[in-house]
Design a protein around this nucleic acid. Structure first.
Length: 532
RNA sequence: GCGCCCGUAGCUUAAUGGAUAGAGCACUCCGCUUCGGACGGAGCGGUUGGGGGUUCGAGUCCCUCCGGGCGCACCA
């Protein structure tokens, strides 16, 4: 149990003892930004005050008085309108260093998902062209989320749907056939130099349909290569055509029909959920020509997702698909799935700037920035950090000139530099940690304790993200951790020939920092270099 | 017209409804006879797009207006 959980437990115990109900109230325990407010603070007294119609300060005082008796607590103060500020004894933090050194790679992980399964679908790019950088945003997001789930004990499936059938594939095939026959690119539905590249790569084909199929399968391979270049590997790729061929789509629609969710209209078949909330969500599943829409294949896919006993089903889509979300929720409900375990993360589009101007882009015009270009320009580490820095909900403006010219300004290097700096010391001196007991109570300056507090934050953060899915908190954390280290390093001399005990304690702390930094970078899918 | 997302310092942005809105870049100074200066320290820079409201407390929730992005297919 980490210290935060311990305090939460004790706070709840305290309110129970004081006969203040907390059943509906989460015990809110925040890390504080300011040392004078202690290590943790809770606003529980203010919330309880409202419920119990009492003075918040009085409640806070009772809470504080009771908490004070816990052995690990240094002091408890009541501040402001009723905050309870909790100061933890230094020895609690000092012990954390030993814990990190003992747990090494496992430091930061937890058991929230132990024995559970999660699946994350991401990227699933339109294969009619190269992977666009905007669409690549889903890659690091999904992969890091999967890593966080794994660190929380889940068994995770990374999955991808390959849209290898449908109208757009047909059109692409026609364009390829036309261009191969010598027609001009300008006259085609799909433009862009990559059409010529496709023709070179796929070789001979007999029909436009075959050309389309060859092309999208080739594009899939390319996209998966781009993902691999960012350290992303999928466990399973589902070709959309597979759902039709296996009969899964047909069976899924039949099941919906049997349950009364399919109706005929205008010669087509529609998914028509009959409950009030979903009244206007009617969508075509079978076209008048008898073929299935993408949506019906996605129904089959989600039926499979919910049939395999997962505890968490996550889809990561570009925000342009947001209209798709309520339909999927309706389908899952209609099929009897548990919507509460279904989460969709929508990420907003990335815009590109060049010379201060926003570049307009579309796949059909052939004018877009590919993931590959950007990865080659700035490297996988900088790309991942840049993407993961931002809340999925926020729009990103990506300045291509800046990325090209000043990629070393990317904060990822600040974090990696801290790791390299540490590695340099540890390379020579690491063995000294192992020589017998170390007195970590020697680590008593603010620089040292702040660094340890920050280190101890990782396990809390991983727990939080496995529930909020807000992976961007990891990059903020990585930067803060590096910052705490640099400040420590600037002010505390590690290797001191006059003081062997202190040297060993500080080496222990440096070692613990390296582990924590490396584990954080690993969650981000970013390398932790020993040299730069 | 209806719906979703965003608007925070010159730029890029952070902040489970909490305390003095936190960083990086840029700009101005300062710090290597000491473990990696890709670092540290100090400064400059904010009426969190405008206006109402809810709340003990709002960047965060509600309403409204403005600005930007994206959806509202027998496309995927």
């Amino acid at each position: 149990m980490n210290i935060r959980d311990q305090i939460k437990k004790d706070v709840r115990q305290t309110t129970d003892n004081l006969q203040l109900t907390t059943d509906e109230l989460e015990v809110d325990l925040a890390r504080t930004n300011d040392a004078k407010n202690g290590d943790f603070a809770t606003n529980l007294a203010m919330k309880l005050a409202k419920q119990a119609k009492q003075n918040p300060t009085e409640i806070a005082k009772k809470l504080a008085g009771s908490l004070q008796k816990q052995g690990y607590i240094e002091k408890v103060e009541v501040a402001g309108p009723g905050f309870v500020n909790i100061f933890v004894k230094a020895e609690v933090w000092q012990k954390e260093v030993e814990k990190v050194l003992k747990e090494t790679k496992d430091y930061g992980s937890n058991n929230l998902g132990k024995g559970k399964k999660a699946r994350v679908e991401f990227v699933s790019a339109n294969p009619t062209g190269p992977l666009h950088f905007g669409n690549a945003r889903g890659g690091p997001l999904g992969d890091t989320l999967a890593r966080v789930f794994e660190a929380s004990g889940y068994k995770v499936l990374r999955e991808y749907i390959h849209n290898d059938i449908g109208g757009q594939v047909q059109k692409l095939g026609e364009t390829i056939a036309n261009v191969a026959k010598g027609q001009k690119l300008e006259d085609q539905e799909y433009k862009g130099e990559y059409i010529k590249e496709i023709i070179e790569k796929i070789g001979d084909f007999k029909t436009p349909a075959e050309a389309g199929k060859l092309a999208v399968d080739m594009m899939l391979d390319e996209t998966l290569k781009d993902c691999e270049a960012m350290g992303i590997k999928f466990d399973k790729v589902y070709p959309e055509s597979g759902f039709v061929q296996s009969g899964d789509t047909e069976r899924a629609i039949a099941e919906l029909d049997k349950k009364g969710f399919i109706k005929e209209k205008d010669g087509a078949r529609w998914f028509a959920p009959n409950d009030e909330f979903l009244k206007d969500r009617e969508t075509v599943v079978v076209k008048t020509d008898g073929s299935y829409t993408y949506f019906s294949n996605d129904i089959a896919y989600h039926k499979i997702k919910f049939a395999e006993g997962d505890d968490l089903v996550v889809d990561i889509f570009g925000a342009n698909h947001h209209g798709h979300v309520p339909r999927l929720q309706a389908v899952i409900k209609a099929l009897g799935g548990d919507v509460s375990i279904f989460h969709v993360i929508l990420y907003q589009w990335v815009r590109f700037k060049k010379g201060g101007e926003v570049i307009a882009m579309s796949k059909r015009s052939g004018n877009f920035v590919t993931a590959r270009e950007v990865i080659e320009m700035v490297g996988s580490d900088a790309v991942r950090f840049f993407i993961l820095m931002h809340d999925a909900n926020s729009h990103i403006d990506f300045d291509l000139d800046l990325a090209r010219e000043k990629s070393s300004k990317n904060p990822v290097f600040y974090v990696q530099y801290a790791h390299a700096r540490i590695s340099s010391i540890m390379a020579k001196e690491e063995s000294r940690i192992a020589k017998g007991e170390i007195d970590y109570q020697l680590l008593a300056t603010d620089y040292e304790l702040n660094l340890i507090r920050k280190i101890a934050r990782l396990p809390e953060l991983v727990e939080d993200i496995s529930q909020t899915f807000a992976v961007n908190a990891l990059t903020t954390y990585a930067t803060e951790l590096a910052d705490s280290f640099h400040k420590f390093y600037e002010n505390c001399k590690v290797l001191d020939s006059q003081n062997e005990e202190m040297t060993r304690a500080r080496l222990g702390l440096v070692g613990a920092t390296r582990i924590t930094l490396a584990n954080t970078l690993n969650l981000l899918g970013i390398s932790a270099p020993a040299k730069m």
